[in-house]
């Protein structure tokens, strides 16, 4: 019996889909059997980010309306040997095509066969959100260091705390721009965590490579050397129960002079 994790944020554009794709892929890299579920009916993207768009035959609505069996709709990621699957959202209809009860049944069915179900939640707090959280056991709230994103995350956390079947949500701070945080132009990690007062499960730096990888349909975690990739892998390991300290945000590739200075103990 696996567990279902919903990735949500309230605000749009903070990186829910990217986070879902990368956490799901990272969990598969750890050898877990993972099913990604896109609940953004009508505005699906998870398939694009995963590079599985052209292999979709059936979708979530087809499964719910019993036009096909769940396994027929699941798209297998060939980069992984039978570990990573995607249940795509329908594109032709909208959120009201599915009810929270139907989602709950579907997720419970999937939990029989998979270790982790990663549910990509649409933006907003309406029907789509309700569908996405219906079957979830855990929740990860994604935010960025912007006041508006933190405000929406706060709202979402308040709603998630009311769901009695979901454990207290955990926080991912995405798109951190180190230089802006240092200058105080952006909210810093401490400020956000004290404000939201929920457990921080990972911080991800803003990186051009993430966007590039998404556009190629290859989640960034497949690149072992990228900073964002390591951050996502660490999040996956924390989900699995390992305790890993947060990565420092400073750039590693500093000049020889800085290295020398550090060698002599100067900051």
């Amino acid at each position: 019996m696996g567990e279902a994790i919903v990735i949500t944020s309230g605000k749009g554009g903070v990186g829910k889909t990217t986070t879902s794709a990368n956490i799901g892929t990272a969990l598969a890299l750890q050898g877990k059997k993972v099913c990604l579920v896109d609940t953004d009916i009508g505005l699906r993207n998870l398939d694009v980010v995963m590079g599985l768009e052209n292999r979709i035959i059936y979708d979530l609505v087809d499964v719910v309306e019993k036009r096909c069996k769940p396994h027929q709709a699941l798209v297998k990621d060939k980069r992984f040997e039978d570990l990573l699957y995607l249940l795509p959202a329908a594109q032709t209809t909208d959120k009201s095509a599915v009810t929270p009860e139907q989602m709950k049944t579907l997720i419970n069915d999937l939990k029989q066969d998979y270790d982790y179900i990663v549910i990509d939640c649409p933006a907003g707090i309406e029907q789509g959100y309700k569908n996405a959280v219906a079957g979830a056991d855990k929740a990860i709230v994604v935010t960025t260091p912007e006041v508006s994103a933190v405000r929406d995350a706060d709202r979402i956390i308040g709603l998630l705390e009311k769901e009695k079947d979901i454990e207290p949500p955990k926080l991912v701070i995405n798109r951190i721009r180190n230089h802006m945080m240092k200058n105080g132009d952006m909210l810093d990690v401490d400020e956000i965590t004290t404000h939201l007062s929920i457990e921080l499960i990972g911080i991800v730096a803003d990186d051009d490579e993430v966007i590039k990888a998404s556009n190629h349909g290859e989640p960034i975690v497949l690149n072992p050397n990228n900073k964002a990739s390591i951050a996502y892998r660490n999040i996956a390991r924390r989900i699995l129960g390992e305790s890993i300290p947060l990565q420092p945000l400073e750039d590693q590739d500093k000049g020889v002079f800085t290295k020398l200075k550090r060698f002599f103990g100067a900051k």
Binding site: R151, D152, D154, R155, G158, L159, E161, S197
Partner: peptide, 8 residues
Amino acid sequence: ARIIRSGQ
């Protein structure tokens, strides 16, 4: 004992 979050 509670945090009153946005919208609450």
